[in-house]
Design a protein around this nucleic acid. Structure first.
Lengths: 220, 220
DNA sequence: ATTTATTTTTCGATTAGGCTAAAAAAGTTA
DNA sequence: TAACTTTTTTAGCCTAATCGAAAAATAAAT
């Protein structure tokens, strides 16, 4: 079994995400931006990840994640999201507080710990942001999702995820009264600026700009 | 505020324990044994911990932990023991399985996490081995404790901790039917080998050698 | 098709943590 | 006190992860 260091796990996870699950190849600069490290550091890390054969690395041409790499990335993502569920559901963290802590917790190496945590949380299938939690074997149960912008007037749905899960964006959503799990209905769409008016939980009406609505994912 | 690396935290915790809470000074070899690292590595670490002024380090003469060092060590111990409670009470770990995992978890750096965990666990005062959990400020509520060997015949008490919390020893105790929290009564003490016969929870009679009984702590 | 700009890599350093082998200090014994 | 033993430290080297500066490769623009 390939053993990765915590830093290697983090980089691999980032590559998995940026490549959209391995669909696209990823550049050094993109990784550098995501990881908040310098390109020089990324190059070095890519060499190491290439040697461990979790990515395919052609100098100057970006990287592609291998099948083995995907499996390992999904295991890290699984751990990350299970811890997020724990933090939100058991320790009353809000969804914009969980990221950093989960980034540390995801590197704890006990297999038993994750099994028991999963069980303790009732085998959740989605994390607090609505993203699916891979199972032990890396399989994900994904839900068909649309952005709020794509919904027609009078369409209803449930807010299940956000594309941009930055703390700032999450706080903003909370502030306007939206949250993962909220039942929503599209009341109106403004043509000229792409903004939408939605009803949250049949009681509160809020407005969202085109940019915000395009980042909110809804299950119909 | 002094920031310690995970390795520094571990060494400092070891020094705190070996010195019995700062009462004795500690030798390089003792630390080396406890940490399973070479004496050369310990010397190096002591230099660093000395520079950060969490220990007082006089070359060739062992180290003493400073007041600042005690505070930091107690914070790590607090985190370690809270995680142990979590693992045992919530995730159904047995007491001999918690050590390694808690050794990793204790280095997670979120203050909010520990506050919430403490609250979630109901502000426990003792860990699964019966050792006291320091509060946020490093204060410990210790219980008067005796070793099982020190009890007289017919004395009763509650098994509250073990001196040697190695996995082997904990497994052995489990096997013979003893556990933290058990009500015990001394039925007999054998003079010539120092062994004792005890009744556990008013139903099971077990024998313990002098060595074992000397490692079991009882609250009378 | 050159030149210019951008991206990526390499090189040399640094810090943290570990190791081995050798030197030095302290402790013990004759 | 001298010699030997044990403990501790130093010195030099290793890996992981980072950085800045410089070089190299690719991409874009004239």
């Amino acid at each position: 079994m390939i053993q990765l260091t915590p830093a290697e796990e983090s980089y691999l996870k980032a590559i998995y995400h940026i490549s959209d699950g391995g669909k696209r190849s990823v550049s050094t600069n993109d990784i550098s931006f995501q990881m908040k490290t310098k390109p020089a550091s990324v190059s070095d890390m890519l060499r190491r990840l290439g040697e461990k054969e979790v990515i395919e690395y052609r100098k100057y041409y970006g990287v592609n994640i291998t099948e083995e790499g995907k499996k390992l990335a999904l295991q890290t993502i699984r751990k990350h999201r299970l811890w997020e569920v724990f933090l939100v559901e058991k320790l009353r963290f809000s969804w914009d507080e969980v990221h950093e802590v989960a980034d540390e917790l995801e590197h704890i190496k006990s297999k038993l710990l994750i099994q028991r945590l999963d069980e303790y949380l009732g085998f959740p299938k989605f994390d607090p942001h609505g993203d699916p939690i891979p199972d032990e074997y890396g399989d994900v149960r994904s839900r068909p999702r649309l952005t709020l912008s794509e919904l027609d007037i009078n369409a209803t749905g449930q807010l299940v995820a956000v594309k941009d899960s930055s703390a700032a964006f999450l706080r903003y959503l909370d502030k306007v009264g939206a949250y993962i799990g909220a039942r929503i209905k599209v009341l109106d769409k403004v043509e000229f600026d792409g903004s939408v008016e939605i009803l949250v939980d049949n009681k509160k009406t809020i407005f969202m700009s085109k940019d915000v609505a395009g980042n909110v994912l809804v299950m119909v």
